[in-house]
């Protein structure tokens, strides 16, 4: 995150408020890890940590794309189906051939881009509600995927070693997957924060009417957000294949809501205008870590979904209560200083 010297009290205040969410998730993560390690020291083993990061990477990648969309006061529910489609499609693409890894990635991202483009055009050009449109494309893409797969599956044996290596190998002890996610996250995060056009995504979500009057190219930005979300879903699809090797048609089924959960837990306001990709990625990491913790603590893994849901509710409720308290505090402060 941009390190800016805090030169005024107001500055510090604003920054604290903005980062409060990232910090509180981080704190929750640390507490969670500490407690779990105290109970079972094997939790913090190299392999354990690696697994968590591997598992979180794909979700975090999707969360980064989803953040761009949600920040503009929209939503992309089709990501899960895009991951499934691309995972299967790229599996078909590589099966029996020794394809270049880069080529596979490009093909996967292209498919994702097309899906994102369709969503983006429908939402930005025809101004139909994003939830409905992406729900529709979710059905359609999923249907296409299932129809194509028709019960077949991709087996690890068909996938070239170079691709599998991408999903499970590492450089300097750091697995590729989280590396890719971090690079993407930092790039998107930096763009959104440091570039004028990046700020426009926030402006659109914060007040669409004002954005129009300010001459912001709303359609273009929303289209971009969807295409980025699609491309990242495509990338995630290929990484899914690389990581698991075996792919059935319903890969990543239901993930769209998992991604939205991660994003919201990560402090991105569902009504747009507020939040960062870092928070969203942390949200993904937290959700994944909880999953692993349950396994380590031998809690019935069935609790995982329930806890994820409760966490999401807790996150938005706390946010809301804080906001209400801030409003009230501001009102009372006004009282003292006079209106």
């Amino acid at each position: 995150m941009a390190a800016i010297t805090a030169d005024t009290g107001g500055r510090r205040f604003v920054d604290t408020v903005l980062r409060a969410r990232e910090l509180s998730i981080l704190a929750a993560l640390i507490v969670l890890v500490a407690v779990t390690t105290a109970v079972n020291s094997s939790f913090l083993s190299t392999q354990g940590v690696k697994d968590i990061f591997l598992n979180a990477s794909i979700l975090a990648l999707l969360a980064v794309g989803q953040t761009m969309v949600v920040v503009t006061r929209n939503i992309d529910l089709s990501v899960g189906s895009v991951v499934g489609l691309v995972a299967f499609a790229s599996g078909k693409f590589v099966a029996g051939h020794d394809r270049n890894v880069l080529l596979v990635l490009v093909v996967g991202m292209l498919i994702g881009a097309v899906c994102g483009l369709v969503n983006g055009v429908l939402v930005s050009f025809f101004k139909v509600p994003a939830l409905v449109v992406t729900l529709g494309t979710l059905y359609v893409i999923q249907g296409l995927d299932y129809y194509w797969a028709h019960g077949q599956q991709i087996n690890a044996a068909d996938v070239p070693a170079s691709l599998l290596d991408l999903g499970n190998g590492s450089v300097l002890g750091i697995p590729y997957l989280p590396l890719i996610t971090v690079v993407v996250m930092v790039a998107v995060g930096y763009y959104l924060r440091a570039y004028p056009s990046g700020r426009e995504f926030y402006a659109i979500g914060s007040n669409p009417d004002a954005a129009r009057l300010a001459g912001i190219a709303i359609r273009k930005r929303i289209l971009t957000a969807y295409v980025v979300s699609g491309v990242l879903a495509g990338l995630a699809g290929v990484l899914w294949l690389a990581r698991f090797g075996t792919v059935v048609a319903d890969a990543a089924h239901g993930w769209e809501l998992k991604v939205v959960s991660a994003v919201v837990v990560g402090g991105v306001a569902i009504v747009g205008g507020l939040g960062s990709v870092y928070g969203a990625a942390l949200g993904a990491l937290l959700l994944t870590t909880i999953g692993s913790v349950l396994v380590v603590l031998k809690v019935n893994s069935f609790w995982q979904d329930a806890i994820a849901g409760a966490l999401l509710l807790l996150a938005i409720s706390v946010d809301r209560l804080l906001a209400l308290r801030v409003t009230r505090a501001l009102r009372k402060r006004n009282a003292r200083h006079g209106a």
Binding site: R199, E200, Y202, A203, S206, N207, A210, A214, G273
Partner: peptide
């Protein structure tokens, strides 16, 4: 016609930072 989530400075210079 302001953007409530953005800073005052960003509001003024949106698009012309």
């Amino acid at each position: 016609t302001l953007f409530p989530d953005l800073s005052v400075a960003e509001n003024i210079f949106m698009g012309r930072q």
